[in-house]
Write a protein that binds this DNA or RNA. Sequence first.
DNA 1: TTTTATCATAGTTTAAATCTATTGATATTA
DNA 2: TAATATCAATAGATTTAAACTATGATAAAA
Lengths: 300, 300
Amino acid sequence: MIKIRDLKYLTAIAEYKHFGHAAEACFVSQPTLSGQIQKLEQRLKLTLIERQPRNIMLTPAGEQLVQQARQVLNAANNFEEAAKALLDPLSGDLHIGLIPTLAPYILPHIMPALNSNLAKINFYLHENRTQDLLQQLETGKLDILILPWLPEMARFERYDLFTEPLVMATSPSHPLANKTKVTFDDLHNQKILTLEDGHCLRDQAMGYCFSAGAEEDHSFRATSLETLRYMVASNMGITLLPQLATINYAPQKHINYIPFESPQPVREISLLCRAGYARMESVRAVVNEVRQAVTGLFDE
Amino acid sequence: MIKIRDLKYLTAIAEYKHFGHAAEACFVSQPTLSGQIQKLEQRLKLTLIERQPRNIMLTPAGEQLVQQARQVLNAANNFEEAAKALLDPLSGDLHIGLIPTLAPYILPHIMPALNSNLAKINFYLHENRTQDLLQQLETGKLDILILPWLPEMARFERYDLFTEPLVMATSPSHPLANKTKVTFDDLHNQKILTLEDGHCLRDQAMGYCFSAGAEEDHSFRATSLETLRYMVASNMGITLLPQLATINYAPQKHINYIPFESPQPVREISLLCRAGYARMESVRAVVNEVRQAVTGLFDE
DNA sequence: TTTTATCATAGTTTAAATCTATTGATATTA
DNA sequence: TAATATCAATAGATTTAAACTATGATAAAA
């Protein structure tokens, strides 16, 4: 029967491509790791590692088995985490993934509550694009995602957190700047500044604009919401910003935020975790804290 | 770090609720198993097992961890199977699940080909209702299912094998008995003999009948297709049988099989395996063999 | 009360994973 | 070309822990 330790050694080699370093990462001596890997290869009757002098590589068989090994290690991790969670459900490490157009704006609202009310949980925050986050959630690198829900996420367990309106951002000198509310039709023929590809906000908010007959400014695509904000302030065009990004942010002198008449464009922010995740109590506690922390933020 | 061996001991106890028997199943002595379980409990600081004299039970924490443990053992199994498959892709054990209304009629057509063309694979056949099969596939007890596809099976990988027509079965003295083809409308007001609940053929075929205005004979529900066939032969009513169950079967004197005018009622037989299963080569080989074995069976 | 079933404990044996030290092979550098 | 550095493999000793057998304790069954 295979041993979890062997799988750790194997995946360490896959990671470091170096027996010495892999051994160090496993807190054993290099001969120990070398020996165990050899035994493993003998037992499986497979060569897993190509020992080129000064250049370690995995064989194709090795690559495949490393994949399987990672699955096992993940499951084993879950076991240990579940055991810890049973000891004290609301404790341990929790890795949360958020998208860049949400993280900096929501974290100030939720982290104080999380840290004080769930003090025994260590929150690790990871900022990444949606696709990367989904993959990391799948592989167990992350435990929770907070992002706008999309149908492709149906395989994960979902908790709706809140509905975030998008508001128009203009420079004070823009023709729309002094309206107290804007409408869908106001977007017609406007020049819209957009985020670069890969941001889901681009697809969502900008999709809304385009359907209203607005035009994208193809000469520029922002890499972050902050860049976008400064472009608007510099009177380069207008854009839609998620409302959280407009609260307590940016000099009011240089930029105006105008809400839409209903129906407002919105994005639906949800919390995801793997179905069958071992620490649902922690997940639900986080859901409750976040829901509580954002109530009142979006009152009309 | 947890050891796979410990998880085996734990799940064995969960299964047998008896230290001695569990130890036997793990091929170790009872004190060995007792000791390791105790160590595990100490290490996790959790009581997993309630030692009532003469009555072993798992604590709630134990139940939960056994679930996690089974996940790990499954993953470990996959690792070993993947390793074996790399040595020789088309070998090893393969557990196939089939439903009772299909197994006896298709196996004679496919097993000779599977056994001779994939001689190094040991095929284990399991006959069960759809719901049980799905659960066993999920938990890794089975590797492959062959059954009529339903939308709830979308989480598994699917290979369509063939489309099986359903034909009408009557006694020779029945008014419809001498037609060479029957139609949807011929079912109107007919008394239909059915299988008992839980057989998916009941839901499929009988659903078709009822929508045509046929009536179920509520005084009788057959436990198997063979019972059903004999009821028809005894002139108790008519029924729909999958065509495979009519090939080389039953005395032609006592029962008539009449195909439907198109559109025929059919069931779509598919092969399922877990997405990401480690031995896709074997699965695809089986798919090919089965497809080949059934070609020609359903020619008009 | 005696017997049986069943799990825990004690003490010993055995297996194997680990370590340190060293060798061997291959690049890199002087 | 020789010297050096790097890195994995090998050898041999040590330590750890898992296994076994034998026995004890407890409660249910006879």
